[in-house]
Design a protein around this nucleic acid. Structure first.
Length: 407
DNA sequence: AACCTCACG
DNA sequence: ACGTACGTGAGGTTC
């Protein structure tokens, strides 16, 4: 069993080596994409002014709110933020999309502006002129759970979900002549829940190597796996994530956009299916209330001073933290153990390939082609060896010419 | 510097 | 009756 000190101290050197190695980006591709996106953004900006019947700053949430709610009256009881202005988040705008063509344009514009300002235009400026690469800083002492964070730039939130976002991730490339290798844990947090709770049903699902969200749906809805609909699977998947975050019927209902009653039935069905998961969650909260903190498998503590607060809102927030922190934190510990083992093994075998990026459950490498087989073997086996519980961890991997396609 | 919004796991 | 998913970092607006 590892001690926390066997992780944190050696990791300092590992992180330093990753920062020094850095990552290469295709500047030409980003520059071309910047031109294209900027043109599109300017068109959208003009269209927004036309649709609003007046010029306004589309980048100002306050002005967007005034146009949508004061001028166009799209929602009589529009939600306000705590500072008193209209809230215009993506979630709210999506629900108003059918009421006026301006709403969709604002959403489209915001998406493009975000990618341009935060990534496409910002990243080239952070290329080190000496190395020609981007060198992030990994912080080991920032998060409450034991995760790393990444700053200047943050390389743990590079876009991947939208089509435009994918183009940005595609611009992350290996050194000339090298290949990009990526490996990530499959469902690490849910697997830890299965192991911590010893829930028979969940452990079996993972042992069988099945689609965990589909299995969950089949059990909750009492159906055959084959007859699970995409919508049932989606709901089960959201419920699974909810468990990791300390679920509530209200929160789940909001996420799924379903009535609270249905959310409650979903949760009841979930805990009927996985009874030991509920017991595990209860144990986490009980431990927090008794000791004032919770711990990861390796002893990392999260202090929870508000766990016995008389203020229900404050207390329940702590209770969700009590559930989430051991799960998220143990996953963080596990990948750190793997990173140290991989670093040492690379060194021992004299490899020139480099570990360059960590994104919570994923590791990325700039690999000399002749070393690919060795790298693959070391990375996957050390990631899977890093945690030896009843439920095994698995790591999937891929090799490509860029970060996007290495998934 | 606070606030809002949104990118990721 | 209350307000509710967990963890981050960064850019733009506003004051």
């Amino acid at each position: 069993m590892h001690l926390l000190t066997d992780i944190e101290q050696p990791l300092v050197e590992v992180l330093a080596s990753m920062e020094i190695a850095g990552v290469r980006v295709d500047v030409k591709a980003l520059a071309d994409y910047s031109l294209k996106l900027t043109e599109h953004m300017n068109e959208l900006d003009q269209e927004c002014h036309n649709l609003a019947g007046q010029p306004f700053n589309t980048a100002s949430p306050a002005q967007v709110g005034e146009i949508l709610f004061d001028k166009l009256k799209l929602d009589e009881k529009a939600k306000k933020t705590k500072s008193g202005q209209y809230s215009t988040t993506e979630e709210i705008l999506l629900k108003l999309q059918d009421r006026h063509p301006l709403v969709g344009k604002i959403l489209e514009l915001r998406g493009i502006r975000k990618l341009l300002s935060t990534y496409v235009n910002a990243l080239p400026a952070l290329i080190n002129p000496t190395t020609g690469r981007i060198h992030t800083t990994y912080n080991q002492t920032v998060t409450a759970t034991g995760r790393l964070s990444s700053t200047n730039p943050n390389l743990q939130n590079i876009p991947v979900r939208s089509d435009d976002g994918k183009e940005i991730r595609r611009a992350f490339i290996p050194a000339t002549g090298n290949v990009f290798f990526s490996a990530d844990y499959s469902q690490i947090e849910l697997r830890l829940v299965a192991d911590f709770s010893h829930d028979e049903t969940m452990m079996q699902a993972f042992a069988h190597g099945d689609d965990i969200h589909a299995i969950t749906a089949a059990k909750i809805y009492h159906q055959d796996l084959a007859s699970v609909t995409p919508d049932q699977r989606r709901k089960a998947k959201t419920a699974n994530f909810g468990i990791l975050y300390g679920i509530s019927a209200f929160g789940l209902a909001g996420r799924l956009n379903i009535p609270r009653g249905e959310a409650k039935m979903l949760i009841d069905g979930y805990f009927n299916t996985f009874p030991q998961v509920r017991q595990y969650i209860d144990r986490s909260v009980a431990q927090a209330k008794e000791k004032g903190y919770v711990t990861t498998l390796y002893g990392r503590r999260r202090m929870l001073p508000d766990i016995n607060s008389r203020n229900a809102v404050v207390r329940q927030f702590s209770e969700r933290n009590a559930v989430n922190a051991p799960i998220q934190g143990t996953a963080a510990d596990v990948i750190k153990i793997a990173m140290i083992a991989i670093y040492r093994q690379f060194k021992q075998e004299g490899l020139q390939s480099r570990m360059i990026l960590q994104v919570h459950d994923e590791l990325n490498f700039d690999v000399v082609p002749g070393e690919l087989e060795q790298v693959q073997k070391i990375v996957v086996s050390e990631m899977e060896k890093a945690y030896q519980g009843k439920v095994k961890l698995t790591a999937s991997h891929a090799t490509a010419t860029n970060w996007l396609d290495a998934h």
